[in-house]
Design a protein around this nucleic acid. Sequence first.
DNA 1: ACCAATTAGTTTACGCGTCAATCAATCGGG
DNA 2: CCCGATTGATTGACGCGTAAACTAATTGGT
Lengths: 160, 160
Amino acid sequence: MAGGRLQRELKKRRPFDSLEQEAALNITRTADRFGICFTRLFREHGLTPSQYNVLRILRGEGKPLPILEVADRMLTAVPGITGLIDRLEAMGLLDRERSTEDRRVVFVTITEPGLQLLARIDAPEAALHRRLLGHLTPDELRELTRLLEKARQSLDDCGG
Amino acid sequence: MAGGRLQRELKKRRPFDSLEQEAALNITRTADRFGICFTRLFREHGLTPSQYNVLRILRGEGKPLPILEVADRMLTAVPGITGLIDRLEAMGLLDRERSTEDRRVVFVTITEPGLQLLARIDAPEAALHRRLLGHLTPDELRELTRLLEKARQSLDDCGG
DNA sequence: ACCAATTAGTTTACGCGTCAATCAATCGGG
DNA sequence: CCCGATTGATTGACGCGTAAACTAATTGGT
C-alpha cells in the first residue's frame, strides 16, 4: 500500500483502500497530466487534441473514411463527431463528401493543408514523448505497455 | 515494437514510431476506457466524475476547504471550479460559505446528504476497481503503480 | 410493393475544461 | 494613508463528451 507519491500529490490523509484503486487512480492521474502537455502542444498549432486525433487517423488511413468509422477509432460518442468534423472542414483541413452508393454515408478525407499541418507537428510531438517518458528504460516502457494492455483485457467482454 | 494490442484496437497500419509513443498512447487509451466505466457508475447516482471528485476531496478533508484548494487537488483549471461548486450547492451536497477573516476566500463543506450519497457509491466503486484491475496480480499492480509514478517524475520540473 | 426495423448522421441540451478578462479584497511600499 | 500589485473568485466565450430525440436512406420480411 505504501504512502506513495500519488497520496502526497493528492494530499490524501489515508492510504488507498486497495492496490487496484491506487493503480486506477495513477492511470487517471498520469493521463490527465500528460494530456495537459499534449493539449498545449496542439494548441500552439491551432488544434485541440480531438482535432489532431481525427487528422492523424485520416492520414494513417490515406483514403476517405466514413464519419462513424472515425468516431469509432476515437472512442468519441457518435453525436460529438459532427461538430468536430464541421470545424475541421471550416479550417480547410479535411473534405466532406457524401457517398453516391449509400447516400446516408459521409466520407471525409484529409486535405493537403491538413497533411502539412500534421507534418509540422510530428517532430515536436515525438520530442514531447521523449521528454515525458524518455527517462524510463526500454524494458520499463515495454513492461508498462504490457501491463496497460493487460489491464484493458477486462473491458473486452463488457462494453466495447 | 511488436504489433501489439493497441495497434489492432486503433486499426493502425504501421507500428509505433517509438516505445515512448506506444506507452503514452496506451496510458491515454486505458484512462479513456476506464473513465467511461466510472462515468457510467457515477451517472447512475446523478453525479459526473468531476462532481464525485469534489465530494470525495471534501469527505477526505473532513473540514471546510477553500475553493481554490479543491481545484488544486483536481487538476481543474481555476475558472471551471465555480460552476462545478454551483451545481453541487444547488443539489444540496455541499455548503458554500465566505470566510470572515479574508473575505475573498470561499470555503466549501460537504453536507450530510453529500456524505450519504458518497456512502452509497463506495461499494460499487470498489467493485468496479476490482472488475477492471482485479485480474492483475498484486505484484503487477505494484509495478504498474511504480512505473506510472516514475513516468510522472518528468513533470516535476516543468509545470506541475 | 409495402411497412417495420435498422443504420448513418445530425440537432439539441447540459456539464466540463481552458483561456482571457474582470472584480473585489488584501498586501506592500512610499 | 494611499496607490499599485497580488490573490481569490467569478464571468463569458468556445470546444468537447454524453445522452436523447430526430431525419433520411437503406434493408428485410411478408
